[in-house]
Design a binder for these strands. Structure first.
Length: 548
RNA sequence: UGGGCUAUAGCCAAGUGGUUAAGGCAUCGGACUUUGACUCCGACACCGGUGGUUCGAAUCCACCUAGCCCAGCCA
């Protein structure tokens, strides 16, 4: 699975612009509002902005669009920075829209002086009524024709804090009859006596998105301002402000389709409900596709890059299945992760013909596909653990490639063993399997006289390390948006197993492993010295279809 | 007839008048296998519909259908 070069229409636009010397190099930006956490959907905007700039020798900025003090929080700023950095999209500059408040005010005043903006005394409700609706044109505000002098004076006094919240707004004078609702004299400044995380008490008026965004882009010299499709209707205003404020740079807004992932909980409100209901373990729960959740799940950022690039940058909006990401994750971990033995649900095996109390070590490569990862010593003794699901007293069908009574399997990297009899516990469950091993079948010996009924993995019970395994399944049960989120979710989507991993493997912080025959796992921060905890990142693919 | 946009397989997506209509995911076969993994081989599209232009249309035109976005002093 080789990720192809992404072809997309924006790439073509940039190449065209460079060819025509419209720009020396592209400058792009990712402009989040610090009012929430980032999820996989944002990864498209982050990575594409980054890649498109970097591929053409340009620059990429991270800019916080912090123009609304009542919804924003510095906590999110740190979270967003961490997530963008985790994706490896190193920003050339970190910017804040709020650093341009003074300049924006001047530009608004410029509009006022040109007679292109006016102070409106209408209430919010009145403005809504005057705006008309989708099919009827709006009416002009009675304050629309105030003199320029009066507007200048009023706007100054708005800034000076002479008015209460909502008492007045500054509006662009465009066209109340426009079929594009956004052009019906959009509000560009509102009064908000709220301290700002960055500017503190310096301002009581704050610019609106439609006004602020194009100017932020222009001030920073952004060449290609990428945003999602819902802003297509805003492009005319974007251009209107760029033109009429007469800013030096003329950024170009280009819209692309948002990345949506099928069957995932993504809304802030919904996630909060699940967190509060205790169904998930926080915003970084591995079942969530928040970037922090993906990180905790062990997803390599490079896999997200490949996934995003493979999807390209379309103008259509669909829902991508997460299985596609899973495949990129496996692809990255396939050769990079050490592959070791873990038994998640152990059952004891006693080797009756192995010298009691004795043990031996067997050398095993960490990853046959990547010798650079080296090898380790596995121990073998008369008492082992194998996976409970790898044993069935009677072979159920001829496809069964695991252990059964009277059958012989290979223990990976060790010997063939043959199950002879079992002992049950009080509940009738198999407690111990008694087996014999054949010393001639030692791994690497080239023994060919018999074919085992499959290969399974094991750990040596005498040396195995206890470990906790957290297995995650799809959180979402159904996508009926009418029903409350807490009912649409699988409360059992997280399963915790207590088992063992082989001894002697040094586990680095957040290291990713392949647990042979199970899948890819990452060491969780909850790990303790004597009890590592692993999250399953993604299971191995399997063509095994149990039939009943 | 408010305006803007989108439509290629179960999912994503190339394709910009001449191709057997890329590729990935998923699925289904098969080979190989000390991971039922990996790898390898094979299968899998009447391009939303209908007409038209053209020697030739997924690509151009017309009409139609379906879906998305817009009536925050949110972004």
């Amino acid at each position: 699975m080789v990720p192809m070069e992404d072809k997309n229409f924006i790439r073509r636009i940039i190449e065209e612009d460079l060819k025509n010397n419209k720009h020396e190099r592209p400058i792009t930006r990712f402009p989040p509002e610090p009012n929430g956490l980032l999820h996989l959907g944002h990864a498209r905007a982050i990575i594409m902005n980054y890649v498109l700039a970097k591929d053409y020798g340009g620059k990429f900025y991270l800019r916080f669009d912090d123009t609304n003090p009542i919804t924003e929080d510095t906590l999110f700023i740190e979270g967003i920075k961490r997530d963008v950095a985790w994706l490896g999209c190193e920003w050339d500059e970190l910017r804040y829209a709020s650093n341009y408040f003074e300049r924006m005010y001047e530009l608004a005043m410029h509009l006022v002086r040109q007679g292109k903006a006016y102070v409106d005394d209408l209430s919010a409700e009145q403005i809504r009524e005057y705006r008309g609706d989708l099919k009827t044109p709006g009416k002009e505000s009675p304050y629309r024709e105030r003199s320029i002098e009066e507007n200048i004076d009023l706007f100054r006094r708005m800034r000076a804090g002479e008015f209460a919240d909502g008492e007045k707004v500054l509006r662009a004078k465009i066209d109340m009859a426009s079929p594009n609702m956004n052009l019906r004299d959009p509000v560009i400044y509102r009064i908000q006596h709220t301290p700002h995380h960055n500017t503190g008490e310096a301002w009581c008026i704050y610019p609106m998105y439609d006004f602020a965004h194009p100017l932020e882009d222009a001030i920073e010299g952004i060449t290609h301002s990428l945003c999602s499709l819902e802003f297509e209707n805003h492009r005319p205003i974007y251009n209107w402000f760029v033109e009429h404020t007469e800013v030096e740079n003329q950024p170009r807004q280009i819209e692309f389709g948002k990345l949506k992932i099928a069957d995932q909980v993504i809304g802030k409100r919904n996630i909060r409900k699940l967190v509060e209901a205790g169904i998930v373990d926080g915003w970084d729960d591995p079942r969530l596709i928040t970037l922090s959740g993906l990180r905790r799940r062990g997803v390599p950022p490079a896999a997200i890059h490949d996934f995003i690039r493979a999807l390209g940058l379309p103008k259509s909006e669909g829902e991508t299945e997460l299985s596609m990401l899973d495949e990129y994750i496996r692809d990255h971990l396939k050769t990079s992760a050490r592959r070791i033995h873990a038994v998640l649900d152990p059952i004891k095996v006693v080797i009756t013909n192995y010298p009691e109390g004795q043990s031996e070590t067997l050398s095993a490569a960490y990853n046959r596909e990547n010798e650079a990862l080296g090898s380790r010593e596995l121990t073998f003794s008369d008492t082992l653990y194998i996976e409970r699901e790898d044993f069935l007293e009677e072979k159920p069908n001829k496809k069964w490639k695991r252990l059964s009574l009277g059958l012989e399997v290979r223990l990976m990297h060790a010997y063939f063993i043959k199950a002879e009899r079992v002992e049950y516990d009080d509940e009738g469950r198999v407690e111990t399997i008694y087996a014999t091993y054949d010393p001639r079948t030692k791994s690497g010996s080239g023994f060919k006289e018999r074919k085992p009924n499959g290969t399974i993995h094991y750990v040596d019970a005498r040396t195995a390390r206890p470990a906790e395994f957290r297995l995650y399944q799809d959180l979402m049960l159904d996508t009926d948006e009418q029903r409350p989120i807490t009912e649409r979710v699988d409360a059992d989507s997280k399963q915790v197993r207590h088992g063992f991993i082989e001894s002697g493997v040094d586990i680095q912080e957040r290291e990713r492993f392949q647990f042979v025959r199970h899948g890819y796992f990452v060491a969780d921060d909850d790990s303790e010295k004597n009890r590592p905890v692993f999250n399953r990142t993604v299971a191995l693919k399997s063509s095994f279809k149990p039939k009943k």
